[in-house]
């Protein structure tokens, strides 16, 4: 555990030295469009949106969740932090919801840039991506690595 927390702190330290944004490199963050009407989200709100239980942002807009699919480690880390589950469990969970006709899984984006572009272009979008790649086009509403 000690080694792990040291490893998690290292990028932060590095980022601080380099004078970069306070978001830790490599940790997934949840982002929205600056005009989405959402300032921040709780962990439970994000669970509801990414696990297909809630289909609207708190501002009332229909939500369009999108995930950074590559590299898979970013998604794996997100779901481990969010609900403590491994990707195969998340995939099995979605198979049940999708094929019983209840809900559809989040859109998969191939890269961090693709997530940024989609979120920056859609006021209802809510994305998950590598925190180190976030820029001014979007607003971070939850940093799970914190």
């Amino acid at each position: 555990m000690r080694a792990l927390s040291l490893m998690r702190c290292a990028p932060l330290f590095l980022a601080a030295c380099l004078g970069l944004s306070p978001v830790r490199a490599g940790e997934p963050v949840v982002i929205v469009h600056p005009d989405s009407g959402v300032q921040s989200l709780t962990r439970d709100e994000v669970i509801n949106l990414f696990m297909g239980r809630q289909k609207r942002l708190p501002s009332g807009r229909v939500a369009a969740p999108v995930e950074q699919a590559e590299p898979p480690a970013t998604r794996a880390r997100f779901y481990q932090l969010l609900v403590g589950k491994d990707l195969p469990d998340i995939h099995a969970y979605w198979a049940r919801l999708l094929y019983s006709g209840q809900a559809q899984p989040p859109r998969q984006a191939a890269s961090a840039e693709e997530v940024l572009e989609f979120v920056a272009a859609n006021k209802g979008a809510i994305g998950v991506m590598d925190g180190a790649r976030v820029d001014r086009r979007v607003r971070v509403v939850l940093d799970l690595g914190k």
Binding site: H91, Y93, A95, Y99, G101
Partner: peptide
């Protein structure tokens, strides 16, 4: 309603 979806269980 998902008993045919083996991957889900």
């Amino acid at each position: 309603d998902t008993r045919n979806v083996g991957y889900s269980y």
